[in-house]
Design a protein around this nucleic acid. Structure first.
Lengths: 115, 115
DNA sequence: ATTTCGTATGCACTATAATGCATATATTGT
DNA sequence: ACAATATATGCATTATAGTGCATACGAAAT
């Protein structure tokens, strides 16, 4: 499915804010779903902002969400356009030391969650 | 060269405006340099806006410019990061019928320019 | 039933970006 | 030197996006 200009713009706009880009970067590099409170902790951003940014990413069709009890888990939408495939590859090339450290912590917690 | 978050955001922001995305799309699909007045004609946008958008793309490091007499030609910067490589691939998947027609016209004019 | 926890959202405010107009600069042609 | 053409930019205005706070909602625990 080829995207049109308007949809591409929505995606570029969604990724042009630092908190949102961090969220996507995190999700791509972690390769698993994350719930809101985990993102809040990792990014050290107020809950209402994380929530809103997630909504924007969701509306742009980049993320999908699933509710499990009290928690809402967000993850990179799998049914993807060729366009999004390239965008994801682009995002995965972004290197950021601090973020990488946080990812390690996240993965640690993921393991603990599973036990 | 790996981009950091801030630079990636600058690029995403640069591409999240319709006129700018059209310009980049045009340049990628035409695979040649274009001068300001050609873009004005193709996109049917006021000169001052085209000029400003080109500047934003230039500042973001996406475009480069070369002055030839009265004209300033813009083109996709060749010295590219892996990040930009993926972004360009993404942009080139955008399909837009009207734009494609304009590209044909542009290419025609390019040929005439060379003769 | 009430409290607690995780998440979402309406509203007011602030910050950022895009536009229109006028005008400036630079180059070429007369 | 002057007019014409191509491009850039300062300023005021308008449009869009992000933030903070309060509060609402929904699920689980007590």
């Amino acid at each position: 499915m080829k995207p049109n200009l308007q949809h591409s713009i929505t995606i570029f706009k969604a990724l042009s804010e630092i908190t949102r880009l961090k969220i996507i970067w995190l999700l791509i590099n972690m390769d698993s779903k994350i719930c809101v409170s985990e993102i809040i902790e990792v990014l050290n951003e107020p809950q209402y902002n994380v929530s809103r940014h997630l909504r924007i990413l969701s509306k742009a069709g980049i993320l999908d969400e699933v509710k499990e009890g009290k928690w809402v888990y967000y993850f990179i939408k799998t049914t993807d356009s060729e366009f999004m495939q390239h965008i994801k590859e682009a995002v995965s090339t972004i290197s950021e030391k601090e973020m990488t450290i946080e990812i390690q912590r996240c993965k640690q917690r993921l393991l603990e969650r599973k036990n």
